[in-house]
Measured scan of single mutants.
Amino acid sequence: RLRTTITPEQLEILYEKYLLDSNPTRKMLDHIAREVGLKKRVVQVWFQNTRARERK
């Protein structure tokens, strides 16, 4: 399986959204995914991984 490459522009948007809410609802994930042009599951995993990194 190929990994999804997230561009610096997409990362910037994702981090902005993360600062507003680190645990977004399904509806918010849909909205964020459309905004950055990624699949909802990719955005969901990015948020999970970012939360895990923050806990370390």
Rank of each mutant, 00 (worst) to 15 (best):
Q44S: 06
T5G: 09
P8Y: 02
K56P: 09
Q44H: 09
L11K: 10
K17G: 03
T25M: 05
V45N: 05
V36N: 04
Q10Y: 01
I32N: 00
L2N: 15
T50W: 09
W46C: 02
R55S: 13
T25D: 07
G37L: 02
K27P: 13
N23I: 09
L20C: 07
N23P: 04
W46A: 01
D21F: 06
I6L: 07
R41D: 12
I6C: 03
Q44F: 04
I13Y: 11
A33Q: 02
V42D: 14
R51A: 14
V43C: 03
D30N: 02
R3H: 04
L2Q: 03
R53M: 13
R51S: 13
I32D: 01
S22V: 04
D30S: 10
T5R: 05
V45L: 09
R34L: 11
Q44P: 01
Q48V: 08
T25K: 08
H31R: 09
R55W: 09
R51F: 10
V43E: 00
Y18D: 00
L2K: 14
M28N: 04
L29G: 00
T25H: 03
Q10H: 04
P24I: 04
P24A: 01
L19Y: 08
Q10P: 01
N49G: 07
K39N: 08
I6N: 02
D30P: 03
Q48P: 00
V43Q: 01
E35R: 02
E12R: 12
S22A: 13
Q44G: 11
R51H: 15
G37A: 06
V45Y: 11
P8D: 09
T25F: 05
K40D: 09
K40S: 14
L20S: 07
K56E: 15
P24L: 03
A33C: 11
Q10W: 02
D21Y: 04
Q10E: 02
I6F: 08
L19T: 08
I6D: 01
D21P: 01
Q44R: 07
T5L: 06
E35P: 00
T50C: 05
K17S: 08
T50V: 10
V42H: 10
K40V: 15
R34Q: 13
V42M: 09
T50F: 10
T50H: 11
L19N: 10
G37P: 01
R41E: 15
R55Y: 12
L11P: 00
T25S: 10
H31K: 13
V43I: 08
K40R: 12
L11G: 11
L11N: 07
Y18S: 00
L19V: 10
R51T: 06
D30W: 08
A52F: 04
D21V: 04
N23G: 09
A33S: 08
Y15F: 07
E54S: 06
A33T: 05
A33H: 01
L29H: 00
R26Q: 15
E12V: 10
W46D: 03
E54D: 09
W46R: 01
I13H: 03
T7D: 06
N23K: 10
N49R: 04
L19Q: 07
F47I: 01
K39Y: 15
L38A: 03
L20K: 12
D21N: 07
D21H: 02
Q48R: 08
E54Q: 02
Q48I: 02
R53H: 13
Y18M: 01
R3Q: 15
W46N: 00
L29S: 04
K40N: 12
L19I: 14
K39H: 10
T4F: 10
T25I: 03
D21I: 04
R34A: 14
R34Y: 14
K56M: 11
V36S: 12
Q48F: 05
L19F: 10
I32F: 05
L38Q: 02
E35S: 08
T7A: 14
P24F: 04
R26D: 15
P8M: 05
T7M: 05
T4D: 15
G37T: 00
L20M: 09
Q48S: 11
D21G: 04
E54Y: 02
E35D: 06
Q10M: 05
S22H: 06
Q44C: 14
T4C: 07
Y15L: 12
M28G: 09
K17N: 12
V45T: 11
V45A: 06
Y18E: 00
R41H: 14
V45I: 10
L11I: 11
K39F: 01
R3L: 11
T7S: 09
L2D: 15
R53E: 15
Q44M: 08
I13T: 08
L20N: 09
T7V: 07
R26F: 08
R53V: 11
T4A: 06
D21A: 04
L20Y: 15
E35L: 06
K27C: 09
H31E: 15
Q10D: 14
Q10K: 03
R3M: 14
A52V: 05
P24S: 00
T50S: 12
T7R: 04
N49E: 15
P24C: 01
T25E: 13
T25R: 02
K27N: 09
H31P: 04
I32R: 00
R34V: 11
T4V: 07
T5H: 13
R41Y: 12
I6M: 13
D21T: 04
T50D: 00
E12F: 13
V43H: 03
T50R: 13
T7K: 03
Q44Y: 14
R34G: 13
R34C: 07
T5W: 05
L11R: 11
I13S: 11
Q10A: 05
S22Y: 01
F47Q: 00
N23H: 06
V36L: 09
Y18F: 15
T50E: 15
R34S: 14
P24H: 01
L38D: 02
Q10R: 02
V42W: 04
P8S: 04
Q10N: 02
T4H: 08
K56H: 03
F47W: 12
K27V: 13
R51Y: 07
L2Y: 08
G37S: 05
L29P: 02
R55V: 15
D21E: 13
N23D: 11
Y18G: 00
T5C: 10
L11E: 13
F47A: 00
E54T: 02
N49D: 11
E54K: 02
R26V: 14
P8G: 03
I13P: 02
V43S: 02
D30V: 06
R41N: 14
R51K: 12
R55A: 13
E9K: 13
F47R: 00
W46G: 02
Q48L: 03
I13K: 14
F47D: 04
T50A: 12
L38T: 00
A52N: 14
N49L: 06
K17Q: 11
L2S: 14
R55E: 15
D30F: 05
Y15P: 01
D30M: 05
Y18N: 03
K17T: 09
N49Q: 09
I6Y: 12
F47T: 01
N23A: 10
N23S: 09
G37R: 05
R51M: 11
L38I: 11
T5I: 12
T25Q: 04
R26M: 09
L20P: 02
R41T: 14
A52I: 07
F47M: 03
H31S: 14
N49F: 05
V43F: 01
R51V: 12
A33E: 05
P24W: 09
V43L: 05
L2T: 13
E12W: 04
E12C: 07
R53K: 13
V45M: 07
N23L: 07
R1A: 15
R26A: 13
K56D: 13
I6G: 06
E35G: 06
A52K: 10
D30C: 04
E54V: 03
N23R: 12
T5E: 13
L14C: 00
T4K: 04
A52R: 05
N23M: 09
R3I: 15
T7E: 15
M28P: 00
R51I: 13
